[in-house]
Design a protein around this nucleic acid. Structure first.
Length: 894
RNA sequence: GACCAUAUAGCUCAGUUGGUUAGAGCGCUACAUUGACAUUGUAGAGGUCAGUGGUUCAAAUCCACUUAUGGUCACCA
């Protein structure tokens, strides 16, 4: 690694404060140029073995619609965390980057820009010119995204980067489409779709969002019936009147009966239909239907084989069926139609407070107008013969539907979803799965690989031989290509590449829970079908990042936290930590600059801890050998280090990253810095231990805070090695219990107790006091630590006896069975002391009484496990002894 | 309407299979400023674990109901 450009680091000592911006770019360059983001290089250099267990993630590709937001930062932080951990553990680790063309979203964005800047539509430009523009936009977005991802410190293998609309992915799409078509899983048919007149495309059910809105609800006389509707403008073609078969009010009317009645544009002939889809409680329990422009009506018409007539065109204007209203936009026509019906005496009443859920396109917000159109669909219920299954419980030669595959792999726990409650949501969706409408009337995306000549249809991977074939102008739903992202970035549809063999199924799909139904379901569907494999073993769903008040971040609220801004301000490590600590899978988290600032402080703390340690290490070296402990504090910190190693590993293993980070921070700050380093100033001569501890915590912290840890590593250990590919510290496989020979808590408590008294009496912290300890069986242990207690509690003199009466003018407290007497001659406030001791005695008495009650309760003694009883007895003994001593002190106040 | 979450200190959250005198960070109060760090240190205040009832020797933890907040799905012309 010597040939690599070395960042311009200061030598020998660290700067006083960690300045992230000074290091981050150089560090990233160092990593990138080392080549270790690529597992091939790791194998070559022995970072991992070729046959090591693999750990692979395909990055959920950000949309090329612009710049990244804080949600992407979470994704980067969490995935990089896992990837760095596994890489250091020696797993064969691959993280594949990519970007998504995001068909509708991107086209819509470019169309808007085009309109804002040039007042032109895509039709003014034509398909080719427009697509050039979109591609240019996408390419610029892509570059920005890559740059941002690198700023976040992501250790992705850029040599394997993919784009959802590149040639390889396009080939995969064409092959998949053909395979599904050949097996009858893709069909072209006239079905009702969600048409967006604004965007001039249909969108899938999942892309439709409903918005509650107050609307007018009209009641009209329709022959002998009163019908209700919120959409009078659709009623021209209505010639069926429907009611529930069990509705007694309309018992005398029979299914199939016809009658003549006066309607908007004159007399019509209507037919009575009985169908259970009608809710007798709603309105009058009678409705007319418009199969061409309503999904419920459509399916009703299908059931009874009724005529369907188009009333509204694709621009939202009324057609010839509307007679005098034809050519008028539906929204303009509505009041006029109502007016006309009123004049004819057919308007019964208007309900002004009707709550209506209007359907809108989640992209662009256009009002959805259902239409019947010829579209391409995936049949999710159709059975096909499985031929390539490697899935447990799915047999080759047997028949399955896509829906059954989706159900099977999650139910059989071959795919784990975290947090588990999202399984319910998954099945809620999958069990009620409808056919998937694939085609979109937009230009940007994978063009449908179907060609037409007259009535002939050809579906294939390449343009058919022979002239006269015209390709379907529509493009495919972006999720069709996205559904194959576990494997298309590793190879293709039908070739077995080395990458596919080595890294598929991928280990984890890490993404936001909001995308579960859009993407996760489709990935499982496409992958199980195309490859006969699960796409990933675990789905880890992160929550959404909200502002400090819990609101979604949005431009209009002006509460957006831009990851790059805050990275610059506080350092990338701080941003990453703030997104990981305090966040749990599937739950939203709140973020504020204050929170990030807190973690910036921690990064600096780690830097300064290292700075101090470095000053006290004779010869910094990379070491994994546990050094010899000479004092109680040494034994204690080494034991705590073992504990924290286990806790962090365990946190990673159970996907509780927040817990791992929190524990590690507590150890680093509250134990190592606040106690051990302070003690080391007194005891001295700790070069070996400090070196070992520093080594270890830098490794443990690296996945969380890659930049500052690598910066320190490079400064301290220098030369050949990158922390990024150091070996993860070995840990035991269970909790390590602390025993007395490594327990520092008595020492800590005595020191804290003395400090507390000092603070209580408002004694100048610098003033040195005299202390006598009646130590009992703790005498030996305390004597060994006289210097530590004296130093940290700032004592002039410390006398330790096995038993000693409280000297005059002293104030006492009890800690760990020892009585500590602090010399406050001349300043003791006897009343205050009396109260302090009495308060403690009171609460202790209550506590003791509780314990006694518990232990004399027969059912407790009979039922509780032995170890619990033993523990309670010990507690009782302890508190009794303490009580005795406190009572002695109070009676001896002088 | 169906289903799923969440409710613990002023704020953000921990609390693993029921057994702690319920914890952390931020904020707050008081004190401390020349050798790792003021992006700091020391000490402290602050909680009837949403409510009610139940199970149990034992409930923040399990169960039922209630209330509040959020989410997913279904939506009715």
């Amino acid at each position: 690694m010597k040939e690599l450009p070395k960042p311009n680091f200061a030598k020998a000592t660290l700067d006083k404060a960690y300045e992230a911006t000074k290091y981050e770019d150089d560090i990233y360059k160092l990593w990138e140029e080392s080549g270790f983001f690529n597992p091939d290089k790791c194998i070559e250099k022995g970072v991992c073995k070729k046959d090591a267990k693999h750990f692979s993630i395909v990055l959920p590709p950000p949309n090329v619609t612009g710049t990244l937001h804080i949600g992407h930062a979470v994704m980067f932080a969490v995935e990089d965390l896992m990837v760095r951990y596994h890489r250091m553990r020696g797993d064969r680790t691959l993280w594949v980057p990519g970007t998504d063309h995001a068909a509708i979203a991107t086209q819509e964005k470019v169309e808007r820009i085009l309109w804002d800047e040039e007042k032109k539509t895509r039709h003014d430009l034509g398909r080719e010119v427009f697509l050039d523009k979109v591609n240019k936009f996408a390419s610029d977005s892509h570059d920005g995204i890559v740059n941002q991802a690198k700023k976040m410190g992501t250790s992705m293998d850029w040599s394997r980067e993919y784009y959802s609309l590149d040639e390889k992915r396009n080939l995969a799409v064409r092959k998949a489409f053909k395979k599904m078509y050949d097996e009858g899983l893709i069909y072209r048919g006239d079905r009702i779709v969600n048409w967006d007149p604004k965007m001039q495309s249909n969108v899938s059910d999942i892309e439709v969002v409903r918005k509650e809105e107050k609307a007018q609800f009209y009641y009209f006389q329709y022959g002998p019936f009163v019908i209700g509707t919120s959409r009078p403008e659709t009623k021209f073609g209505d010639k069926y009147v429907v009611m529930h078969p069990d509705d007694k009010r309309y018992k005398k009317y029979k299914h199939g009966d016809t009658f003549e009645c006066e309607w908007i544009n004159g007399k019509i002939s209507a037919t009575i239909i009985k169908d259970e889809a009608v809710d007798p409680e709603f309105g009058t329990g009678v409705m007319t239907i418009t199969p061409w422009h309503d999904a419920t009506d459509f399916f009703m018409a299908e059931r009874h084989d009724l005529d369907k007539e188009q009333v509204i065109d694709l621009d939202g204007n009324l057609m010839s069926a509307a007679g005098e209203f034809s050519g008028m936009h539906i929204l303009d026509a509505r009041p006029k139609i109502v007016e006309k019906l009123k004049e004819k005496g057919l308007l019964v009443k208007i309900d002004e407070d009707y709550m209506h859920a209007k359907a809108t396109n989640s992209r662009g917000g256009g009002l959805i107008e259902p239409q019947i159109m010829k579209q391409w669909w995936v049949d999710v219920k159709k059975k096909f013969v499985m031929q390539n299954s490697k899935i447990e419980g799915i047999d080759n030669g047997k028949e399955y539907s896509l829906q059954e595959l989706l159900q099977h792999v999650v139910r059989s726990e071959q795919i784990e979803i975290l947090p588990e409650r999202f399984k319910k949501q998954y099945f809620n969706w999958v069990d009620n799965l409808l056919d998937w409408c694939l085609s979109r009337q937009i230009w940007f995306g994978h063009q449908v690989p179907a060609w037409y000549k007259g009535d002939e249809v050809y579906v294939g991977v390449e343009t058919p031989e022979g002239g006269g074939w015209a390709q379907d102008p529509d493009t495919l739903d972006t999720w069709f290509s996205a559904g194959m992202f576990s494997f298309t970035p590793l190879g293709g549809v039908d070739e077995e590449t080395d990458d596919l063999k080595a890294y598929h199924p991928t280990s984890v799909l890490e993404t936001g829970y909001d995308i579960l139904t859009f993407w996760v379901v489709r990935m499982i569907m496409m992958t199980t079908y195309m490859r006969g494999e699960i796409p990933f073993e675990t789905v880890y769903l992160h929550g959404l990042v909200r502002d400090d008040q819990g609101r979604k971040m949005s431009k209009s609220l002006d509460n957006i936290i831009d990851p790059l801004d805050v990275s610059k301000k506080f350092g990338t490590d701080a941003v990453r930590l703030s997104l990981i600590i305090g966040a749990s899978p599937g739950n939203d988290s709140k973020l504020s600059e204050e929170k990030i600032g807190g973690f910036r402080n921690f990064a600096n703390k780690l830097w300064n801890i290292s700075r101090f340690m470095l000053m006290n290490i004779d010869e910094p070296k990379i070491s994994v050998k546990k050094p010899e402990a000479k004092t109680l504090a040494d034994r204690w910190i080494l034991e705590e280090l073992e504990n924290i190693k286990y806790k962090v590993k365990n946190g990673f293993d159970i996907y509780n990253f927040s817990f791992a980070g929190e524990q590690l921070r507590d150890f680093t700050w509250n134990e190592l810095a606040d106690w051990y380093l302070e003690i080391s100033k007194i005891e001295g001569d700790k070069s070996e231990i400090l070196n070992y501890v520093l080594n270890t915590i830098l490794k443990l912290w690296h996945p969380f805070m890659p930049f500052v840890t690598e910066a320190i590593w490079q400064e301290v250990y220098d030369e050949e090695n990158l922390l990024m590919v150091e070996k993860w510290p070995e840990t035991k496989d269970s909790t390590v219990y602390t025993n007395d020979s490594v327990n520092l808590s008595d020492i800590k408590n005595i020191i804290t107790g003395i400090r507390s008294l000092k603070s209580d009496y408002k004694i100048d912290p610098v003033k040195k006091l005299k202390v006598v300890i009646s130590a009992g069986n703790k005498k030996g242990m305390l004597e060994e630590n006289v210097a530590v207690i004296k130093g940290l509690a700032r004592l002039e003199n410390l006398q330790i006896e096995e038993t000693v009466e409280k000297p005059e003018g002293h104030v006492g407290f009890v800690e760990g069975g020892a009585e500590v007497f602090v010399d406050l001659t001349g300043i003791v406030d006897f009343e205050k002391e009396k109260k302090r001791l009495q308060d403690e005695i009171n609460s202790l008495q209550k506590y003791t009484k509780g314990l006694e009650g518990k232990l004399s309760n027969k059912s407790f003694v009979d039922n509780a496990p032995e170890e619990v009883i033993v523990k309670e007895k010990e507690k009782l003994e302890e508190s009794k002894t303490k009580l005795e001593k406190l009572e002695g002190q109070v009676s001896n106040l002088n």
